Amino acid sequence: MIVRTAATGLVIAAAFAKPIWAQNMETDLHRAAAANDAAAIERLIAAGAEIDARDGSGATALLTATHRNHLEAARALILAGADVNAQDRILDSPYLYAGARGHLGILELTLSHGADLTSTNRYGGTALIPAAERGHVETVRTLIEAGVAVDHVNNLGWTALLEAVILGDGGPRHVEIVRRLIAAGADVNQPDGDGVTALRHARARGQAEMIAVLAAAGAR
C-alpha cells in the first residue's frame, strides 16, 4: 500500500494488508488441514488465523482437507464457519469436490452448512453430474435428496443420467444410479448436444441392463 505522510508529504510504501505472523498462521492452517489435525486447526483459528485464506492454487484450508478426505479437519473448519462454497482457481469448492469424489462425510457436512446446490464446476456441471459419472451411488442418493436438479445440463451437453451412461461402465453401480435418477424424475429422453439420447448411447456401448432400465422408463 502506498501512503503519504501528513507531516512531510513523502510517499512511502507500507505492507498494511496483513502482518507476517498472520500470513504464517494461514499457511499453518492449510498444513493442519492437510495433516487432518483438528486440534491444531482449532488453536490456529482461536489465535486469529483467517479461516478462508487461500493458498497458491486458490484453495482454502477446507478445500485442502476435502482433497484428502480428511473428515475431522473438515468438520473442525466447517463448524468454525469455513465457507463450503469457496472455489479455487479451477472452480472446485469443498462442496463440489466432495460430491464429485464421493467423500460422503464431508459432503453431508457441507450440505448442512449452506452448500449452494446450484453452484457449478469448470465444466458447468453440478456436484451430481460427476458423482453419477464416477459411480458414487450413495453420493448420488444424498444429492438427489438434498434437491440438486437432476436434469441440469453441463457445458458438454450432458445431464447426470447421460454422463452415467456415456462415461460409466454399464455395471451395477451405474445402473443403480440411473434407476435413482429416473425415480427422481430425470428426463430419459433428454438428448446430448448432438441429439443422441441415453438409450442410443447405451445401445452403442452394449450396456444390456442399462438398456432394459431405460426402455422400461419410456426411453427412446
Results as ranks from 00 to 15, higher is better:
residue 103 H to M: 03
residue 202 A to T: 01
residue 69 N to L: 06
residue 187 D to F: 09
residue 37 D to Y: 11
residue 4 R to L: 07
residue 6 A to S: 12
residue 206 G to P: 01
residue 70 H to S: 14
residue 201 H to D: 04
residue 17 A to C: 12
residue 22 A to P: 04
residue 20 I to T: 08
residue 94 P to Q: 13
residue 5 T to C: 15
residue 54 R to V: 04
residue 210 M to T: 08
residue 201 H to P: 04
residue 141 R to H: 00
residue 150 V to F: 03
residue 195 G to S: 14
residue 28 D to C: 03
residue 64 T to F: 00
residue 45 I to N: 00
residue 214 L to N: 05
residue 121 N to L: 09
residue 146 A to G: 02
residue 130 P to W: 03
residue 16 F to E: 09
residue 116 D to N: 08
residue 177 I to Y: 12
residue 81 G to R: 03
residue 205 R to Q: 11
residue 14 A to K: 15
residue 57 S to V: 03
residue 82 A to R: 12
residue 166 I to F: 06
residue 30 H to M: 07
residue 66 T to P: 09
residue 113 H to M: 06
residue 120 T to C: 00
residue 2 I to M: 09
residue 105 G to D: 15
residue 114 G to H: 13
residue 39 A to E: 13
residue 60 T to S: 13
residue 135 G to V: 10
residue 38 A to Y: 13
residue 110 T to V: 03
residue 70 H to K: 10
residue 97 Y to V: 00
residue 58 G to L: 15
residue 161 L to C: 10
residue 206 G to E: 01
residue 96 L to A: 09
residue 44 L to I: 11
residue 156 L to W: 06
residue 9 G to N: 09
residue 114 G to C: 08
residue 111 L to E: 00
residue 124 G to W: 02
residue 147 G to K: 15
residue 85 N to E: 01
residue 212 A to S: 15
residue 94 P to T: 14
residue 134 R to F: 11
residue 109 L to F: 00
residue 64 T to K: 14
residue 4 R to E: 08
residue 24 N to Y: 00
residue 157 G to I: 12
residue 108 E to W: 05
residue 30 H to Q: 06
residue 85 N to I: 14
residue 58 G to E: 07
residue 86 A to V: 03
residue 20 I to V: 12
residue 68 R to N: 06
residue 217 A to I: 14
residue 210 M to F: 00
residue 68 R to W: 01
residue 145 E to C: 02
